[in-house]
Simulated scan of single mutants.
Amino acid sequence: MTRADTLSRARRLDRPELAYLVRFPTADGIRETQLTWAELARDTDWATARLREHGLAAGQRALLTASGFEGFWGHAVIGALRALKVTYGIAEAMGWDHRRTSVFHRELRPHAVIGLSAETLEGLAGTADIKEMFRATPVILARPAAVPMLRAVGVAAGLFSALGPALALECPERSGAHVNAAEWRVGERDGQLFLAAGEQRTSLLPETPLGIAGRVVAGRCACGSEDPRVLFAEARADQPL
């Protein structure tokens, strides 16, 4: 039996609805929620549309910096890159792997770098000129603590962040990081963000304070999206995604 035959038979097997058990930090400690394959497929479709807005298309290359434990949202981003037929490389988001980020960036010459962390930038700063390295990269989507570091040297980075089990991704308008309104309800109370599962989400999540300072902007964005946008109150250390 060939590998192709094995994979073909595997695709016909029944599989449970549960794709991931997601653990994420909140204002009251670590919380868990479920993620089904159907929800993951919808998350992937949403991420695909958002990355397409940034001009990602077939034949381009991208670099994703992510950690293995971030698989529940990394899977959606990887699925989006595959759907767009974008060749991608993956480097660890921890600072100790900054050299791989440097090598991939040099060899791939990516159209987009997604998920840059402050730890990676701190590691790169000892061996490279951050502005020179990233200024010619068309799309930089970085985590909240990394965005001000990049903008301070003239790199026009957009936001890319976990928001509990949700993903927040800034559009080219740079007016806040969008959250999928069809799947999540995001809001603020006393300057702190909270998240709850939306009506389409079968994995239940009651209103949960995230312990993240920020505010939410409602209404239509200049990009045309009706999804709410999150504005973080200040740079914060990257939380586990």
Results as ranks from 00 to 15, higher is better:
residue 1 M to E: 08
residue 2 T to A: 12
residue 5 D to A: 15
residue 11 R to S: 14
residue 11 R to H: 08
residue 15 R to L: 10
residue 15 R to M: 09
residue 16 P to Q: 10
residue 26 T to V: 07
residue 36 T to G: 12
residue 37 W to Q: 07
residue 40 L to R: 05
residue 42 R to D: 13
residue 43 D to N: 14
residue 47 A to E: 01
residue 50 R to E: 09
residue 52 R to I: 00
residue 53 E to H: 05
residue 59 G to Y: 09
residue 60 Q to L: 07
residue 61 R to M: 05
residue 63 L to R: 03
residue 67 S to F: 03
residue 77 V to G: 06
residue 84 L to K: 08
residue 86 V to G: 12
residue 87 T to V: 06
residue 88 Y to P: 00
residue 89 G to A: 14
residue 91 A to M: 01
residue 98 H to G: 02
residue 101 T to D: 00
residue 102 S to V: 10
residue 110 P to N: 11
residue 111 H to R: 12
residue 111 H to L: 01
residue 115 G to F: 09
residue 120 T to Q: 15
residue 122 E to M: 09
residue 126 G to W: 10
residue 131 K to P: 00
residue 133 M to W: 03
residue 133 M to N: 00
residue 139 V to I: 11
residue 143 R to L: 12
residue 145 A to W: 02
residue 146 A to T: 06
residue 148 P to C: 10
residue 150 L to D: 05
residue 152 A to W: 03
residue 157 A to F: 05
residue 166 A to Y: 03
residue 168 A to N: 05
residue 169 L to W: 07
residue 170 E to F: 10
residue 170 E to P: 09
residue 171 C to D: 08
residue 178 H to E: 13
residue 179 V to N: 07
residue 182 A to W: 00
residue 185 R to M: 03
residue 189 R to M: 04
residue 192 Q to E: 15
residue 195 L to W: 01
residue 197 A to P: 01
residue 198 G to W: 08
residue 199 E to W: 01
residue 205 L to C: 01
residue 209 P to G: 11
residue 214 G to I: 05
residue 221 C to K: 02
residue 225 S to T: 14
residue 230 V to S: 06
residue 233 A to L: 04
residue 233 A to Q: 01
residue 237 A to H: 06
